[in-house]
Amino acid sequence: MREKRLYLVITFHTTSAAMAMESLCAEKGLPGRLIPVPREITAGCGMAFRAEVEQEQSLLEAAGAADIQVDGVHKLVI
């Protein structure tokens, strides 16, 4: 298993919102990528946006400006 480290993980209520986030970040050149939701957040399924913790403010501002509904914002060692 690869080494774990701290990441910012943003979750969404729907896959559509996750796709909107990915599309927005690609458009704005904001780094990060979609991952399966880690079990530390919730058992089950779905996808989340993983980025560097320093990106929190810029990502949340971008999401807010684009009306993308965020479910939760987590800092996790994964």
């Binding site: 298993m1 690869r2 991952i35 399966p36 939701v37 880690p38 079990r39 530390e40 994964i78």
Partner: peptide, 10 residues
């Protein structure tokens, strides 16, 4: 006991 999400992502 690895998270299945982490294994699948790797």
């Amino acid at each position: 006991d690895y998270d299945s999400s982490a294994v699948s992502d790797e």
